[in-house]
Design a binder for these strands. Structure first.
Lengths: 215, 215
DNA sequence: CTTAGACTTCAACGGTCGTTCAATAGACCG
DNA sequence: CGGTCTATTGAACGACCGTTGAAGTCTAAG
């Protein structure tokens, strides 16, 4: 099989993705990235125009694909051809499942990407701008679908619920290894099947609980 | 009123707390911290012995107080003098309320501290070691209490549930401002009362949903 | 006042950072 | 072959990093 050889740009994106995910933006140097990628230091500025541009390029590369897949699944559960209003479980499934599927069946690049995404999402200095640029449009569609699936909930409850939902997902993707330590090895953070079996039920039940708050 | 003047150590801890929370460890320089604190650069090494020691001192300062308050409230709801097995809501309340109370009634230092804690908790490189050192003993007590409050749940479900619980809390403390943007200003991340009203119900319902998973 | 000890200042160290640029190599086409 | 454009190399720049040590200041006890 003739495998297409990785270009310099791809080597740099792969190495940056991996190292930014583990060490953060300021904790990773361009020299470390180019050494990992096996290319010359100056090529970062030649191909991307600087460290920050490289960082954004890493986030952009897989962001569009994730949005596509999420919207495709959302369409399946509450689009024109779908049964009446989608269940909350179906909406949160359309939000989580693309990530879990990529984690289970795609390469290690997605692994690093999601870990990096968790890092960015929790960062006061990067979160607002970079997450918004890539994901705001998609997220608003999901929030609308959540509101439709829980018609009795106040909009404020759905926004806060989405915040909690994202937080639960984010920490699960961050690869801190803390779950492994706390459970004495009984649970493993990298066990995608275990995460898949629990994240959806937890979040759907939580949203329902929010919707019935005080009612 | 004679106010005790802040010592150099306190000035450094305050400035470091604020800047580490906003910019992370590698994104903050000692020169920036000492400028903010209004003291000489060399005093960091004199009083703390280096940048990393200062970082850990920041985390330690309020960590012990948080543990104390959490355990005190846990004792109230499921200690020897408490009514029979605590409700899940009461346990998660004992876990969240100290943070929410400090946020509402204590100074801006706690604000920065919790934001920093969120940063550390999500960091692959700091999370496992530093969070564990300070919080593992307390967290294990809470996990036991959660198991007792949901006797039909599998231990794995409680560990994963605690992971989701912590994630929801973490993102809410991170001060990314993303909730404000997404909701168009309808919700404000800094609104502690709004968070208090929703985080407990969401998490308690989520844990219950996990416990009844497939049952 | 003198002395001891804790604290603070100042200047500098070696090292690493992101970025730049002129020179070189390689591919494609006439 | 010669010419052109893209890609790569290697060396260097100035800036900032964390850390150090010697000198200076302050306070309290003898």
């Amino acid at each position: 099989m003739a495998r297409a050889k990785r270009t310099t740009k791809e080597k740099l994106l792969d190495a940056a993705e991996k190292l930014f995910a583990r060490q953060g933006y300021h904790g990773t140097s361009l020299r470390q990235i180019t050494r990992e990628a096996g290319v010359d230091l100056a090529l970062v500025n030649y191909h991307f125009g600087g460290k920050e541009k490289l960082f954004e390029a890493v986030l952009d590369r897989r962001g569009a694909m994730l949005n596509e897949e999420r919207l495709r699944r959302l369409e399946e559960v509450c689009g024109a051809a779908a049964p009446r209003p989608a269940a909350t479980e179906a909406v949160v499934g359309a939000f989580f499942d693309p990530i879990l599927d990529f984690l289970e069946h795609a390469g290690p690049g997605w692994h690093s990407y999601f870990s990096l995404l968790a890092w960015v999402n929790n960062s006061p200095q990067w979160g607002k701008r970079l997450m918004g640029k890539t994901f705001n449009a998609t997220v608003k569609r999901f929030i609308e679908a959540l509101m439709a699936s829980l018609p009795k909930a106040a909009p404020e409850d759905i926004y806060w619920g989405y915040n909690f939902l994202t937080g639960a997902l984010t920490l699960s993707l961050a690869e801190t290894g803390r779950l492994d330590v706390l459970s004495g090895g009984l649970c493993r953070s990298a066990d995608v099947a275990a995460l898949r079996a629990r994240l959806g039920p937890f979040v759907a039940a939580g949203l329902r609980g929010l919707a019935q708050r005080g009612g």
